[in-house]
Write a protein that binds this DNA or RNA. Structure first.
Lengths: 232, 232
DNA sequence: TTTCTCAATTGATAAATATCAAGTCAAATA
DNA sequence: TATTTGACTTGATATTTATCAATTGAGAAA
């Protein structure tokens, strides 16, 4: 890793509170690289050699079984992925590929584990990050089990609207195929779900969506902070 | 907590490697109680005041939204629940109720967080436990998105068979209503799924299930260690 | 034993979701 | 400009899953 990049990395919340010595020891053997889009970073089943941090861009976590494949999550800056596999010294449960040109930090697993042993502040930061990841999956799982496809889409739109300033106009952060997979439905059904939401003021224009009747949409979506809130 | 119970608690993997001093500080204000079945221990949305450890019995984690309710997980001895909420000092995402008479350890959240600050060995044990919980939910989520209801049941039966010695006869660990909810299907569909599996050697007798043609069942189920294996 | 209760099953039907096959449209390319 | 490409949409249909209603059956209570 280049010396010039260190200050930027040091500013990331995960690495901000750790001791200087731990920081240096970790980033001796770390990589900080820019990947083009559609690069497969890791494959499920392989041993967890690195912890990954998305600094810029976007990474899709996906998984397959039988012949099917599904998008499990999208990792945006600044987010980690595959943390649990690293901590457990186990294999990856998900594959990862860039879906944009992305700057990715890669830290050898053994260095992460050693740093946790040494550095309480870093251990605390890792615990917070891992707990957040856990809660995010639980929320996803609740959404999938407790909501229909249309409800999942409606709540997702409300969430993106909030995250983008709540103006009533939002940009879908990835293509519809990916969004459909993330929401657990076929691409065709995403189109139909958008149509179902038309009477609730959802106007789609390419990857822009206008919400013209948020009150009605919320009535249908029944948002629930224990599913939709990314902070709690 | 009674003095006589301390050795038993000390033997639990989570508390085995921690320092004596930390151990004593934690269990000063802890509760170790036996609850009858069907007791609501916590409710989703409430602040996480305690970390719970199931020492004997069984606890159902469930969640609701809209009018629906679903079983999220069953916690067997010795397992924790609601760890992430405790670590994040946040609210519970799931509710919990005993489904048998159960001995439960309850440790005040702030004591857990203080102990992590102080005690590296305990922090390491907590990280391992949390990472395992995370991976368990990811596997559940993969199963739900990538498999049909019949496949989920088939794999679950194979898993219980393995866990119970692989004799080809297994006891369903909870009633079928709960199993159905856990597997993400209606109770009626669980019955039908069992019927669908009959040609694959699945013979149901109350809560006992015999697997008379494991090879055929595996052919249908296509078990996948990255979903079904609880150890990896 | 008989009755009662409740989980589980079965049947009929409805709703949700997936699949297959065209078709549309806009951006990229020639 | 014409063409190609690929994502998205739409329609028709099949499959999966849920719901409602009725029935069964085993264990608990009388």
């Amino acid at each position: 890793m280049r010396l010039a990049d260190l200050p930027e990395v040091r500013a990331i919340h995960l690495f901000r509170s750790m001791e200087e010595e731990t920081f240096n020891s970790i980033f001796k053997a770390a990589y900080f690289q820019t990947f083009p889009e559609q690069v497969d970073l890791i494959e499920e089943g392989n041993p967890a050699d690195f912890l990954y941090v998305v600094v810029e861009g976007c990474v899709e976590l996906h998984a397959k079984a039988n012949g099917r494949e599904t998008t499990m999550a999208m990792v945006l800056p600044v987010g980690t992925f595959i943390l649990a596999a690293v901590l457990n010294d186990s294999v990856y449960l998900m594959s990862a590929r860039t879906c944009q040109k992305s700057r990715i930090l890669m830290i050898p697993s053994q260095d992460i584990r050693a740093a946790i042993e040494k550095d309480k502040a870093f251990a605390a930061a890792i615990i917070r990050e891992l707990a957040n990841c856990y809660r995010a999956v639980v929320k996803e799982h609740k959404g999938l089990k407790l909501r229909s496809a249309v409800e999942r889409l409606a709540n997702r739109l409300l969430r993106y609207n909030d995250a983008q300033g709540g103006s009533g106009s939002l940009l879908l952060p990835f293509d519809k195929r990916t969004l459909a997979s993330l929401l657990g439905m076929a691409p065709e059904n995403l189109s139909r779900a958008f149509n179902t939401l038309k009477p609730y003021g959802v106007v789609v224009d390419g990857s822009t969506v206008h919400l013209t009747d948020i009150k009605a949409l919320k009535m249908l979506a029944k948002p629930n902070s224990l599913i939709d809130d990314r902070v709690i």
